[in-house]
Design a protein around this nucleic acid. Structure first.
Lengths: 394, 394
DNA sequence: CAATCTTCTTGAAACCTTTCACAAACTTAC
DNA sequence: GTAAGTTTGTGAAAGGTTTCAAGAAGATTG
């Protein structure tokens, strides 16, 4: 067999039989209507296995466990919640009964009665952005230490989805909500603490007396980034970012403007390149636009509102033949792990992502357990990390 | 003010007052003990605002709404669940009462009585890996279409955390669980369907008659990757991946071995470089080890179990002076968005991430709503995307 | 051995909603 | 103007757990 055998096979539908669409219940999609790129699936139906072992069709509850163990219902609950209060013998009996019945505690009932949840949620702006998943890891770390679990929710920069999730979480009576909001001043958001759900705003400073917030000084970050570019001699600089409903974008731009002003350069020297979202794809789009400008009108540097944009911009510029940093210097924001591994290692403004998440979670836990809790506004300081995309190899 | 002013400020603690540690409740951490890199936070305490507006201290329930609206409790419930059954006038009254009382439906009680949850969960192997967040987006898309919400959970390749989350989700009686498991054959996993929680395994094929699964043929992917390298003339090739408890790793390695065999090369030509996780950092470590080998004993190509490893490997090798692909050709796996934007654009094995998530969610929805559901095993076909990291610029 | 303590166990109430059979109030049709 | 229907609202039961006052059994003391 020639080495190319496998490679050929990779493009073939492995299952020669024309199996129906892999998504049952969906009909009317003819095979030919599928985009050429979509890999063809193979499907195997399985006979449903008879569940012989399952003791009963409906889930066992404390009552069943109590009966099986020959104890009262209250005792079963004690085994669950205050095991030290029940004698070892009884406990063993109860635990055996639980195991044999496959008992799974009904959390809805528990929470309804006990009134407390063991869950906090982090509602992220964009789960696809490594910045936020790093923050999430900090959150998880702090939560685990406190014996809580974290549910992650992804608003995806979509206000409707954000509102949906807020409703849901409030209805779930979670112990608290961490959120990187689209709009930190929205009325929707400040309602939660009023009704008893603590909220900590992450990556936005806010001062409404309703929430704690943990943020990094974005204005300062923008200032630092632009000051760096100005020091390198750049005078006409693009600001790539958007939409302007996102506070991080406007703050960073404001910082950039401030730096320009302080350097005595006219405000018009900061050229706005507006994007529809903070994604790699939008960055590529921005690159297309920038590279399309005649060289004499094109800015010599670009400051991007985050690293995803910067990476997309970088990729597109390089592939269109622009040299980075000679033709266009680029500064990103966040210093995500991929920034250092980029085509041209990216100068970026680093934020303490992990610490941000951890601190936010700790504030939330304090708020929900400490009656003397006072809201705090914690601000961290960003740090410029200079790499090849601005300084070149010299 | 000189342009460097802002840059200087960035390294200073903006708040001159020696504020206590930003994490209340933690003590004994002296300022000097902080690592130098940790940005210093500024903290602002806020007096707790008196809640004048809050109507009552405890949340309002249906009963209160009923009283306020002058209707019966059952009617309020009807407004919530079957609004078409209540007259417009009454409905308006009830809705007004809800709004003025700030009523938030108690989901625990609802679920306890109604017995159904409007939530599905996706338990991911690594939320920091863009591959999985892309899968998650597919899941969210399908769920949204069905009016469900998605909670994301991150096992972080940690079996204990995975088990914890499974317990939690089962107790929550979620409508279903999507999971990319550490070990798809674990007994823990097959218990869920027995007890009524549908489970769909994502990115692993499984054939135990208990779950649906949606996967991409990893053996084939490994085969394709290695065949490509062999065609380019490489004979001694590193396989970078681990730990071996992760099925994706062993499958891809198996595929690589098969390709080697088919090409008539000895099995020993595939050099195992074992990593502790599938992360960029581990990839850098592998790069260190590979670059440290004398040139004549070093493999001329590396196939990495995923793109994170490949990006780390690439970054480390480049910074240690190895040329890619001349000294070392690299193939990644997943074709995440950052692969194309890497220092040397990465050849990678693409998987239909979005489709994977969407299909999995659709199978889950079918299982939980269609009584005639039959478990399916859907397998997609991967596709090699060739870029500079193997083929060079020629 | 009675009295007092401890240590375990119990049973019933409570948590907040949904559900469902039924009643009440209107309509319509003859 | 009554019978039959339709629409809208009602009240009580139920769902699975936790909590807590109180009881039972056993151990200790004087």
């Amino acid at each position: 067999m020639t080495p190319s055998g496998a490679a050929d096979r990779a493009r073939r539908t492995p299952d020669p039989a024309r199996t129906p669409s892999p998504t049952p219940g969906r009909s009317g999609r003819t095979p030919s209507a599928e985009p050429a790129r979509t890999p063809k699936p193979s499907v195997r139906r399985q006979a449903r296995r008879l569940r012989q072992g399952a003791t009963s069709r409906t889930a066992a509850g404390v009552k069943d466990v109590a009966a099986a163990a020959g104890v009262s219902l209250g005792t079963v609950s004690n085994v669950l919640n205050r095991p030290e209060m029940v004698s070892p013998t009884t406990r063993a009996k109860v635990e055996a009964a639980m195991a044999s019945l496959g008992f799974v505690r009904n959390e809805s009932a528990r929470q309804l009665r006990a009134g407390s949840s063991r869950i906090i949620a982090y509602l992220m702006l964009d789960a696809g952005n490594p910045f936020f998943t790093d923050v999430a890891r900090g959150v998880e770390e702090a939560a685990e230490k406190a014996g809580l679990s974290v549910f992650l929710c992804n608003s995806n920069e979509d206000a409707a989805r954000e509102a949906n999730y807020l409703d849901l979480l409030e209805q779930q009576r979670v112990q608290g909500v961490l959120i990187t909001p689209i709009d930190p001043d929205s009325a929707r958001l400040s309602k939660l603490p009023d009704r008893g759900t603590p909220v900590v705003v992450v990556d936005r400073a806010i001062d409404d007396g309703e929430h704690c917030s943990v943020a990094v000084d974005d204005v300062l970050g923008g200032e630092v980034a632009l000051t760096h570019l100005i020091e390198l001699g750049h005078e006409r600089i693009a600001f790539v970012g958007g939409p302007n409903t996102i506070g991080q974008v406007t703050d960073r731009r404001a910082g950039a403007r401030a730096a320009l002003r302080q350097a005595g350069l006219p405000a018009g020297n900061l050229v706005d390149v507006l994007t529809g979202a903070l994604t790699v794809a939008e960055g590529r789009g921005a690159g297309q636009r920038l590279a399309g400008l005649p060289a004499d009108r094109r800015p010599t540097a670009a400051f991007c509102a985050n690293d995803l944009l910067a990476l997309g911009l970088l990729q597109q510029c390089v592939s269109l033949g622009l040299r980075v940093p000679e033709d266009l210097a680029i500064v990103g924001y966040d210093d995500i792990e991929f920034a250092a591994a980029a085509a041209v290692p990216l100068t970026s403004v680093r934020q303490p992502r992990h610490l941000l998440g951890r601190t936010a979670a700790e504030l939330l836990l304090d708020e929900s357990s400490n009656p003397d809790h006072e809201h705090q506004r914690v601000t961290f300081t960003p740090e410029l990390v200079v790499r090849t995309s601005t300084r070149g190899n010299t």
